[in-house]
Design a protein around this nucleic acid. Structure first.
Length: 591
DNA sequence: GCCGTTTTCGGCCCGACTGTTTTCAGTCG
């Protein structure tokens, strides 16, 4: 057996995208182009490792991957190349695939530029292009003007400044700014943030805003007065795109009130959800767009509400968080959509850091037990868990750690129950314990004995190989005092990738041993990610949504955790901190 | 190349904006 390099999903997606580009240029088989584009998109989005699917002979289980592409990928994994792809790609300059990364440059333009100026090196193509622009050579060729030349340079500048995707937290703040601006226009009836913001994705690329108006031209004029505009990408009476000084693209759509339902649906997306919905309409001999549904005769039916629009296609209304083409349309057809968890279902938070001084090696919280408990009362919680980081092992002996936890226990015992206005809150003595690189816990057993139970988390050595890190997690989880795996993937959005254990093994172990997966609501974590939640649900694992608050206001992060849970299709029955204390305590073997 | 509660053949999502096209191609979402 020839050993193969383990091609990453993103590398394969890129390869298939390039094949699609070639088919676009060839013009001969437009539907092959669509097929390759679709396959690339599916691979980009899935959390299943293609290499593993290939090993298990399951590549075609992905929608959009048929026997044809599966055969090509088989060749790729066996021999590190695909002869058919190489033959297709050969006549085209590699530099082309770098240029299409620039907004406004598509396959045709990229190919033209590469041919005309003999650009071959994908690594230097963009630089060379900039040089040609400086020499004003682009505007001299047919199909380009001085204006389009300048435009390309602006788009290159934008490309070079391309920032990370925004966290949902940042995106909400930024969307509020422009919404506040638009609200002042007398011609605007309603403003809604849509797109990935409405779907509550964990990260947001562009901000999408829908504007309901009867006078789109006036609404557009008002939009263009927004002081944060750095560049206008396009402007029309039905849509406009701008880039703000902090390099965020904002897309705005203007539409009249009678088509509000259609606009909401269309602009919420996702793209792949919309495509599936339109295919469904087509099967019914209808045509769906942002304006409504056209029948065969071309007569348009308008929708003022989203519910009616979905209904017209024979579907239950689909919550925005589910609109990612992950089976929601089929579920809506057969009335099997999940009854998603809601913020009001949450009855407590087990991952709150306090200012109790226990000399941990990670950040401690800034607020006192009392302040945090008061907040828990405000949130109508029935319980709160104080889960500070363990005392640092480098600066303490085992005995010192045990002593620190004994004193802390005495402090928490004093407030084990908090009564306020006759509402009783149970206060739990927890700890967030480091899982050391060898899988041992950073607290000795006699220290753990002081606790009600503990959360185990990885805070170091994130890059261990699959087998090592899997065993490391399992070893930590098997300790009877460990009930929760904290921020399981360890990712920090835009900063640190997920660890890569054998998740199936972890999920299976958790289900069989009464261990719970945390959904960490801290906006830069949002961990487990939604795709892994969906994978875990298959094992019937139970979850707990915690904020990981290090300050009292951060206990308000819970909605972000709920958003992730919804995107993972979770119902309240999947999440243990929706249970009242008298039921939860049994599950946790507490009294 | 993919896919199927009208199909293993015959289809394949829909529309806006830009530029230089006098009727449309390219790009984007």
């Amino acid at each position: 057996m020839v050993s193969s390099r383990n091609f990453s999903n993103s590398a394969i997606a890129k390869l298939l995208k390039n094949i699609a580009v070639v088919y676009k240029l060839k013009k001969t088989q437009p539907f092959k182009m669509i097929a390759y584009e679709k396959a690339a998109a599916v691979i980009e989005q899935t959390n299943l490792d293609l290499h593993i699917l290939w090993k298990n002979n399951k590549l075609t289980s992905l929608p959009g991957i048929g026997q044809g592409i599966a055969n090509h990928l088989d060749e790729l994994f066996r021999t590190n190349k695909v002869k058919y792809f190489e033959r297709l790609l050969k006549p085209y300059p590699q530099a082309m695939f770098s240029l299409i990364e620039i907004s406004g440059i598509g396959p045709k333009t990229a190919f033209k530029l590469c041919q005309k100026f003999n650009l071959n090196n994908p690594k230097t193509a963009v630089k060379q292009l900039e040089k040609l622009i400086k020499q004003k050579k682009i505007s001299k060729i047919k199909g380009f003007s001085q204006e389009s030349e300048e435009n390309i340079q602006e788009n290159i500048n934008q490309f070079k400044q391309k920032k990370d995707r925004l966290s949902i937290y940042q995106a909400f703040a930024l969307s509020k700014q422009i919404i506040n601006h638009l609200k002042q226009s007398p011609h605007i009836i309603q403003i809604e943030p849509l797109g990935s913001l409405r779907r509550q994705a964990s990260t947001i690329g562009d901000i999408d805003i829908a504007v309901i108006t009867k006078q789109p031209k006036k609404a557009l004029d008002y939009l263009l007065k927004y002081p944060q505009i750095k560049k206008i990408i396009n402007q029309g009476i039905s849509k406009a795109s701008i880039i703000t000084f902090n390099n965020i693209q904002i897309d705005i759509r203007f539409q009249s009130p009678d088509t509000f339902g259609s606009l909401l649906q269309h602009f919420t997306g996702s793209k792949s959800h919309n495509i599936q919905l339109r295919q469904l309409a087509q099967e019914k001999n209808l045509s769906l767009s942002e304006y409504g549904i056209k029948d065969k005769q071309g007569k348009l039916k308008k929708f003022s509400s989203e519910e009616k629009l979905y209904q017209a296609l024979g579907l239950d209304w689909i919550p925005p968080q589910l609109r990612e083409a992950r089976g929601e349309i089929k579920a809506a057809q057969s009335h099997k959509l999940p009854n998603l968890i809601n913020l009001k279902d949450i009855k407590g938070d087990f991952h709150v850091h306090t200012n109790y001084f226990l000399q941990s090696s990670h950040d401690s919280g800034v607020d006192s037990f009392e302040v945090l408990i008061k907040k828990a009362h405000q949130l109508n919680y029935q319980y709160i868990g104080f889960a500070d980081h363990n005392p640092s092992i480098s600066r303490h002996s085992s005995q010192q750690i045990i002593d620190i936890l004994k004193s802390r226990k005495q402090e928490i015992e004093k407030i084990k129950y908090s009564n306020e206005k006759n509402v009783k809150i149970r206060v739990l003595n927890l700890l967030e314990v480091d899982i050391r690189p060898d899988g041992s816990l950073a607290v000795p057993d006699k220290g753990l004995d002081q606790l009600d139970f503990a959360i185990a988390s990885i805070h170091s050595s994130f890059h261990q190989d699959k087998a090592t890190i899997t065993n490391r997690l399992l070893n930590a989880l098997k300790h009877p005092k460990i009930k929760i795996l904290g921020h399981p993937s360890g990712r920090i959005i835009n900063h640190r990738p997920s660890i890569k254990p054998d998740w199936d093994k972890i999920f299976d172990f958790c289900q069989k041993n009464n261990k719970f997966l945390e959904i960490n609501a801290y906006p830069s974590r949002l961990d487990l990610p939604d795709s892994l939640i969906q994978q875990a649900v298959k094992y019937k694992v139970k979850f707990i949504i915690n904020t990981d608050a290090h300050a009292v206001d951060q206990m308000d992060f819970m909605p972000y955790g709920i958003a992730v849970a919804k995107r993972g299709w979770l119902e309240s029955k999947n999440v243990i901190n929706t249970l009242p204390w008298n039921k939860l305590k049994g599950i946790l073997s507490l009294t």
